[in-house]
Computed example of a mutant assay.
Amino acid sequence: MQTELKTSINTDLQQSNEKGIYRRFIKRPMDFLLSLIAIIVLSPIFVAVAILVRIKLGGPVIFKQKRPGLNEEIFTMYKFRTMTDEKDSNGHLLPDNVRLTKFGVFLRSTSLDELPELFNILKGDMSIIGPRPLLVSYLPLYNEHQKRRHEVRPGLSGLAQVNGRNSISWDEKFNLDIEYIDKISFIGDWIYIFLTFKKVVVREGISSETTATMDPFIGSREFTSE
């Protein structure tokens, strides 16, 4: 019994050390190298999409928004613009489903709008795989469990994205984010990278059932775990 317990403890320690080594010494250089290669290889697509966005939606071509990253530090995230700036008579922006054009839907369904985030990864704001960066306004709404999503850099894709993306509930999404953090590994990241490509090809989970993107998060103080 004692031998089995020691073996189990040693195995857990070894796995913990491997995760620590990957997180501290491998993950960031891998992100930098992969994002640099992707930017170079996809540069013709960057140019083509930028020109089309300018023609169909006008300027600016790049949508910039503040998002919380590692340790809740705020950074500027880049995406290709997918919506118009149409406003009502009071000067307020119209709902997303009104401002989201057919071309914008195409960019989102193919995830082409996410390409500029490769520069965020290159800079160190984001990672290839990790919890998606959400709105700054959500920060006060998180419970202690949900706040853990900021223990790592936010990702271009993640465990929640390959398991439903915007079609799953917020609780499911946050639980998957924390599950990723607890089980982060080199092999796991590569599995999620390949699954992300598959999701992009089949265009699953782009929207929720009620909105053009995702229902806003209104807070959930209870701890939920599956």
Rank of each mutant, 00 (worst) to 15 (best):
I40K: 01
A212P: 02
T210R: 09
T210W: 10
P116Y: 09
L42S: 05
E4D: 09
L13S: 04
L94R: 04
I37E: 14
A160E: 00
M214L: 09
K123Y: 06
N120V: 08
V136M: 00
I218H: 11
P133F: 06
M214F: 12
I218C: 07
D189C: 04
I121L: 10
L115F: 09
F194D: 01
T213N: 13
S16D: 02
K64D: 05
E72I: 12
I9K: 09
F103V: 06
L115S: 02
Y180M: 02
S35R: 07
T3Y: 15
L118Y: 11
S89V: 15
E73R: 03
M214S: 04
Q161I: 04
I193M: 08
K147C: 05
A50G: 15
E209G: 05
L36Y: 11
S43E: 04
L195R: 11
L112A: 06
K6T: 12
L135F: 10
P68Q: 02
D182P: 01
N166D: 06
E204Q: 15
V162C: 04
K198Y: 14
V136S: 00
F80Y: 13
L42H: 01
E18C: 05
V105D: 11
D177R: 01
I51H: 08
Y180W: 04
S89K: 15
G69T: 01
N175A: 11
L135Q: 08
K198N: 10
I128P: 11
V61R: 05
I51L: 13
S111H: 12
E226M: 15
A50V: 03
P131C: 00
L141M: 09
I21M: 06
S157I: 04
F217E: 08
Y22M: 08
K183G: 01
V152L: 11
E222M: 07
F80T: 08
K6V: 13
L33F: 15
R28Q: 05
I121E: 09
E209T: 08
P68R: 01
D31Q: 01
V53T: 07
R54G: 01
I121N: 09
G104D: 12
F103N: 05
M30K: 05
L57A: 11
A38Y: 14
L122S: 08
L107H: 15
A212Y: 05
P133H: 03
L118T: 12
V200I: 15
F174I: 09
Q146H: 10
T110H: 15
V152N: 01
S35Y: 06
A50P: 02
L42E: 02
I121F: 12
V152K: 03
F197L: 14
Y22C: 06
Q161R: 04
L176T: 05
I121A: 10
L118E: 07
D31K: 02
L93T: 02
R67C: 05
I193G: 06
E151A: 08
S157A: 10
R221C: 07
I74F: 08
S225T: 11
P29M: 06
S127L: 08
W190F: 10
K19W: 07
